[in-house]
Write a protein that binds this DNA or RNA. Structure first.
Lengths: 222, 222
DNA sequence: CTTCTAATCAATTAATCGCTTGAATAGTTT
DNA sequence: AAACTATTCAAGCGATTAATTGATTAGAAG
């Protein structure tokens, strides 16, 4: 095999991964899987796709090496192949945010208006959690919280936030997080908390990035 | 706009970048551009594509925000939009190498047989260069070397390596590098140097990663 | 001004992709 | 065993992609 053929073959293989990332629904599925293992049916429901369509997209992701499966009874559970997939997703999103004008505009008009403050770095949050100086709020759905979360985080889905304010330590700053760097839930939570007179900020990125950095995690995920 | 629509729109925009990465020829073009700015014609020649085809692929990359252009006379020069694109390419290749069996096999059967030693970390090479304890060999084509290279690196294209051995400091270890983590040229150079009784290793990854890490660089690139 | 050159544009064609639909497979429950 | 369920498979159809070809545009050189 000549080195040119080698290079072509190799880069075509790399392109398989790129192709898998070239569909919005598949990227959404990857973000949901970054919260923890899920079955096809569950993924279809949360992503708003039919089971058949979900299954086909997952097959694509699997062939590209981005997810792995295990079977239990009738159900097939999918999960990310490793934390490096989280890093890849983050690199993709970072490039898109910096260089794709439509992304910048979407983020500015939908997210930044809700919270324009700098997010709290993970290392800083970890230190403050250990000193009990902050309340951590996880606004994801309960099953995602159960799969794994920042130690000591309180899980309150957005719809219940106003009714459960007293569960969040009085007089403490609240740091909210969600599924990733562009998750509306955390932005919305921070806006609502501030409207109630609370001091609130977002955690930098989301739970998957906390996990990928090797920081301590609570929950059934390991 | 509902948050579901926002999410779909946003992830579809992210997918634009993914799509751009979903073609082997485009990934090769990105790797060549990571060495420095090039014109369409030059890129077509080095990638083995027609100018028209090259131009179309570059348009795709440009619409995805991965490259930018400037025009000088008849020529249009393309360059990467930023170092974060290098990081994205590396994340993609890393995931593919770890999770795509065909990549693993290609790398093992074509690269690892030429050099199975651990590459030299960039920080270590930088320290040893400053102490004059090592010879750095850049095996890329001269125009890529001229666009930017590791300080003090000697540029010898592979075809001239055996004839120009005496240009490489006697009794010193040689650290060779090339275009990126899977560049055949550095692997081949190390194998040939060892066959000549020289002590030789590869630099971890390649020049673009050196640059992206903010380490000192020589050449017309800035 | 004419000729040449680099890049882009536009159209064509075959291949691939995404979604839907319904059948098939494999496991569980009654 | 029959009925139910979760997932995959297979086929169909419209949309999109990649490479080629030739025309067009814009700049340089003679």
């Amino acid at each position: 095999m000549s080195s040119t053929n080698f290079k072509h073959d190799l880069f075509n293989q790399f392109a398989r991964v790129g192709k898998a990332l070239g569909n919005g629904n598949r990227l959404e599925l990857l973000e949901y899987l970054a919260q923890g293992e899920r079955s096809v049916d569950e993924l279809g429901k949360v992503a708003g796709l039919t089971t058949a369509n979900t299954s086909q997209h997952l097959q694509q992701l699997r062939q590209a090496g981005l997810v792995t499966t295990r079977k239990h009874g009738l159900k097939v559970y999918y999960r990310l192949s490793g934390n490096d997939v989280i890093a890849l997703l983050d690199a993709l999103r970072a490039v898109a945010q910096r260089h794709v004008a439509d992304v910048e505009r979407l983020v500015n008009t939908y997210l930044t208006v809700k919270d324009s403050l700098e997010p709290v770095p993970r290392a800083e949050l970890l230190a403050r959690v250990r000193e009990g100086l902050v309340t951590v709020l996880d606004v994801r759905p309960p099953e995602e919280y159960a799969a794994g979360h920042v130690p000591g985080a309180v899980n309150i889905p957005l719809a219940e936030l106003e009714q459960r304010l007293e569960e969040l330590g009085q007089g403490q700053e609240i740091v909210a997080y969600c599924r990733g760097p562009h998750c509306v839930l955390a932005y919305e939570a921070v806006a609502r908390l501030r409207a109630q007179g609370r001091e609130a900020r977002r955690l930098e990125d989301g739970y998957p990035e906390w996990l990928a950095e090797g920081l301590p995690v609570e929950g059934s995920r390991e």
